[in-house]
Amino acid sequence: MFSEGPARNGDVALPPQPDATDRKLLRELQRDSQRSVQVLGECVGLSPSACHRRIKVLEESGYIIGYRAELDAILLGFGMQFFIEVELNSQSETALDAFEAAVQDIPEVLECHLMAGQADYILRVVCRDHEDFEHLHRRLSARLPGVARIHSNMSIRRVKARTGLPI
Rank of each mutant, 00 (worst) to 15 (best):
Asp19Phe: 01
Asp32Gly: 03
Gly62Met: 03
Leu88Lys: 01
Leu114Ser: 09
Ala101Glu: 14
Ser47Cys: 00
Glu4Thr: 08
Ser92Glu: 06
Glu4Lys: 12
Tyr121Val: 04
Leu75Val: 11
Leu58Val: 02
Val86Tyr: 03
Ser92Leu: 05
Leu46His: 12
Leu75Cys: 07
Gln34Phe: 09
Asp11Ile: 12
Leu25Gln: 02
Asp72Thr: 07
Arg8Lys: 09
Arg68His: 04
Val12Glu: 13
Ser33Leu: 02
His137Ala: 10
Leu110Ser: 13
Thr21Met: 01
Leu136Val: 05
Arg128Lys: 14
Leu136Met: 12
Gln81Met: 13
Gly5Cys: 07
Arg143His: 03
Phe82Ile: 00
Met115Val: 03
Glu85His: 15
Asp72Pro: 02
His52Arg: 12
Met1Glu: 10
Glu100Asp: 13
Asp120Gly: 01
Cys43Ala: 13
Ala116Leu: 15
Tyr121Cys: 01
Leu40Gly: 02
Arg139Gly: 15
Leu58Glu: 04
Glu87Lys: 14
Arg31Trp: 15
Gly5Phe: 07
Ser155Glu: 10
Glu70Thr: 10
Leu76Glu: 04
Met1Arg: 08
Arg8Pro: 00
Cys127Asn: 14
Val109Lys: 05
Ile74Tyr: 03
Gln91Ser: 11
Ile150His: 12
Phe99Arg: 04
Asn9Pro: 00
Phe82His: 15
Ile122Arg: 11
Ala50Lys: 04
Asn9Lys: 12
Cys43Arg: 07
Thr94Ser: 14
Met115Asn: 13
Ile106Met: 01
Asp97Asn: 10
Ser152Asp: 06
Leu140Tyr: 09
Ala13Thr: 15
Leu40Gln: 13
